[in-house]
Structure formats: structure tokens, C-alpha cells
């Protein structure tokens, strides 16, 4: 079974925010209005963390794109009361929107604050409804959602591979953020495939994972030169 993982090269990432926009567009993530935004209810599957280090004027500013980490030992699925979030056999942590009762326990339990909640029924202008991505289902009010590693793309890639009777090649399945990154800082692939770029990067001395000591075993690796 493949084990999908992502590697984000922070040395290359400029923090341009393209991944965030690509993600919102690809996954039909709801856009909240100004009032909701002021209440901190913006829904970002791909978030951007900003960390300042050092004393003025020798400041280092780090911008870190933060998707769901699809942990191998996810704290979120352990607390879900209704099997609405689970880890599938390929290691993707998935949400079942139609089953979620909206208790938000998984959000409280996620150490990475990767999940977002539909506080209201998501709304779009009629015109915008025309250009929704038909591959991704829309969410309803009162359910939790999060980055899916664009699992709908995997579905398509699998179908194509099966039709051609071959294995999925490295780089064939890639989520919108990795696909669109102008700095080519986001890599995606199969950790089980020893030839894949992601496998190599994950073993690089530059690689680290967020909050590793929690034992969540995230499948998103960050690469950064330790200075």
C-alpha cells in the first residue's frame, strides 16, 4: 500500500500564498464574509504560519505553509465519537462530512489546529456556483473539514493507472498546492516507494516534522537548513 506524504522545502518557499489560493479553489472551500473573518472564522485548509526569530534588526522571518499533516498516529481520529474522521489504508486522514455531528472534538484535539468548522451554511453567489470543482463535494453547515491531500485527484490517478494497467508513477498524484507552487517547494509522493522524491527528502538531514515529540508521526516533512 502506498503511504502518501508531503515534503515542504522551507528554504525554497517564499511564503507567496499561492498554495492557499490553489487549495481554496480546488476544494471549493467556503469563503466567509468580512464579519465572519473578523470573528476568526476563516476557513483555510492550507494555512500559513508566520514566525519571527531574533532581535531587531537581525530578524529572521519564517513563513510556513501548514496543510493537514495526515499523521500516522492522528490524535483527531481517536476522539471522534462517530467515525467521521478516520485514517484510510493509504495513510490519508479523511473526513466523512455526512456523518460528522459537529462536536468539534477533533479540532480541539488536533495539536496542529489543522481543522476548520462550517459555522454557517457556506454560501456563494449564484455565478460562483457555476465554477465549482465537480470532483469535490460541498460541505454543509455544522461539520468539520480539512485538507484531504486532494484525495479526489488520487481517485482519478488510480482510475487512469488501472485503465492503463500500470502502477502510479512518482509525481503523478499531486495535490493542488504542490502542483501550483511557484517556488517548487512542495513535493508529494509515496513514502513506501524508495525511489520517490519525497522518500529521499524525508531522509534528508534537513528534514524535520512539527512537534515530533508528541508522537503523532506527521506525514508532512519540512526541510530547512539548520543555521
Amino acid at each position: 500500500m502506498p503511504k502518501w506524504a508531503m515534503a515542504i522545502d522551507l528554504d525554497k518557499c517564499t511564503g507567496c500564498g499561492d498554495c492557499m489560493a490553489a487549495c481554496k479553489l480546488e476544494n471549493n472551500v467556503a469563503i466567509v464574509d468580512a464579519e465572519q473573518a473578523a470573528d476568526d472564522r476563516v476557513m483555510l485548509w492550507m494555512d500559513m504560519m508566520t514566525i519571527y526569530e531574533g532581535e531587531y534588526p537581525n530578524i529572521k522571518l519564517k513563513r510556513i505553509p501548514k496543510p493537514c499533516f495526515h499523521c500516522d498516529n492522528p490524535p483527531c481520529i481517536k476522539v471522534c465519537p462517530v467515525h467521521a474522521t478516520y485514517k484510510n489504508e493509504e495513510g490519508l486522514v479523511a473526513q466523512i462530512y455526512n456523518r460528522c455531528i459537529g462536536c468539534r472534538y477533533c479540532m480541539a484535539a488536533c495539536p496542529y489546529t489543522a481543522k476548520v468548522f462550517n459555522w454557517y451554511e457556506p454560501e456563494w453567489a449564484d455565478e460562483f456556483k457555476t465554477c465549482m470543482n465537480p470532483d469535490v463535494s460541498l460541505r454543509m453547515k455544522g461539520v468539520v473539514e480539512k485538507c484531504s491531500f486532494c484525495a479526489h485527484r488520487l481517485q482519478k490517478v488510480k482510475e487512469n493507472a488501472r485503465a492503463d494497467d500500470r502502477e502510479i508513477s512518482d509525481g503523478e498524484y499531486s495535490p493542488a498546492c504542490a502542483d501550483s507552487c511557484p517556488a517548487e517547494a512542495i513535493f508529494f509522493g509515496d513514502l513506501e516507494n524508495k525511489e520517490s522524491k519525497v522518500f529521499k527528502l524525508s531522509n534528508s538531514p534537513r528534514a524535520f516534522r512539527e512537534l515530533e515529540d508528541l508522537g503523532t508521526i506527521p506525514k508532512v516533512f519540512y526541510l530547512s537548513e539548520k543555521e
Binding site: 462517530v82 460528522c100 455531528i101 459537529g102 462536536c103 453547515k141 455544522g142 461539520v143 468539520v144
Partner: peptide, 8 residues
């Protein structure tokens, strides 16, 4: 507290 009490 549930977002979807209809699904309780």
C-alpha cells in the same frame, strides 16, 4: 454544542 444536532 453540536453543529449538527439532527445527526445526534
Amino acid at each position: 454544542d453540536l453543529g449538527r444536532p439532527d445527526r445526534v
